[in-house]
Nucleic acid binder design. Structure first.
Lengths: 204, 204
DNA sequence: CCTACCGATCGGTAGG
DNA sequence: CCTACCGATCGGTAGG
């Protein structure tokens, strides 16, 4: 399974696909428990590998954690951002991304919900590379939504007096709230209504 | 320091105040790192006690965790809820609670921000008593705000077509968002504006 | 990618 | 509330 897909001209080293295999599992586990409880031992056991077999791919636990964040970003981009960007510029892109985001949560793209919210919560008060990397991703998301909001304003879809940064912040707050109660249908319905109302208030 | 305040008629056992001392420290630590990383060893070291001296107050780690949640609830109630309830019924109570909540965060009532958000994030995908207890607290908060919203509607302060549950959910989402970026003044300003706009939209 | 190992720490217990 | 201890697991290393 692991080395099953040979790379282009067979040059993809076995180690590369194993690395991806390890990181995807690490991201799955971290979405449930946070990064720190994903010990090298528990990760190895879950993969049917030896501890040092896992460890050999990374120089330290922090490097494993940062690489895991990278793998999670790829999965997120493929699932939410890339499809979202295919929608027409402006409001349509915002709506598409919000819809994909809710599906990304409901479909358990990461089994514990949003990987980034789990890790952000875990590290929010612990300075370091992990925290900074996750925060930068969050800032980026808001900036992207704010840009789309400006596009929508130029297209006359969203009112000119709407503050793009505030609008993006409001949408982010509602999606983040959705993440903590994925198994509560009542809460999920409130999320959808809050997002809907927020967008409706900005339109026209 | 620990046994310094004698109880009524001196009957307060030394063990009781030590217990409180332990739990308050545990709650402080958990607000930063989550509950699970608060090991009995690290807690004991931070208190200048022996491991088993700490452990003796609780039958297991889960009991320590649940007791810590209880102690955190007390601190929260004294800081936010009790003063909030002293305001006049209706909108004034809602505004007072939101203001106290932002102060509770900014003042680092728990050094890592909101204890309950940290623990809720940590346990959101791990079924058990810890998760259920925290969730019940969150449900309770929303129900309380929704009740105050109904009071405000009867007083003619908030429009009748505002859904109290949705309104409470929106306010909760913004405060929760505030918790994850306490050291970012830009984000904190967005929180205040989002709360203000949300309330203004509901008024009249 | 493996076995075998290191010192440190984990939750928990015995006995006082 | 303490010392002393248990088996298990931690991140990491040696050597292959």
């Amino acid at each position: 399974m692991v080395g099953a897909h040979a790379g282009v001209r067979g040059v993809t080293p076995k180690g590369e696909s194993t690395r991806k295999y390890i990181l995807d599992r690490a991201a799955d586990m971290a979405s449930v428990s946070g990064l720190e409880p994903v010990t090298i031992g528990s990760l190895a056991r879950s993969l049917g590998m030896s501890k040092s077999g896992v460890y050999a791919h990374f120089g330290s636990k922090e490097e494993l954690q940062l690489a895991t964040i990278g793998a999670a970003r790829e999965r997120y981009s493929e699932t939410v951002i890339a499809p979202g960007l295919k929608a027409p510029k402006g409001l349509a892109q915002i709506e598409e991304i919000m819809e994909r985001l809710l599906a990304y949560l409901a479909n358990r793209t990461f089994p514990g919900g949003c990987f980034f919210n789990s890790v952000n919560a875990e590290f929010h008060a612990r300075p370091g590379l992990v925290r900074d990397t996750i925060r930068e991703g969050k800032r980026n998301w808001r900036a992207q939504i704010a840009d789309m909001t400006r596009d929508a304003q130029e297209l006359g879809e969203i009112r000119a007096d709407v503050d793009p940064e505030l609008f993006a912040f409001q949408l982010e707050s509602f999606v983040d709230a959705a993440n903590w109660t994925l198994d509560d249908p009542v809460a999920q319905a409130l999320v959808r209504r809050a997002i809907r109302e927020c967008i409706d208030n900005a339109i026209m």
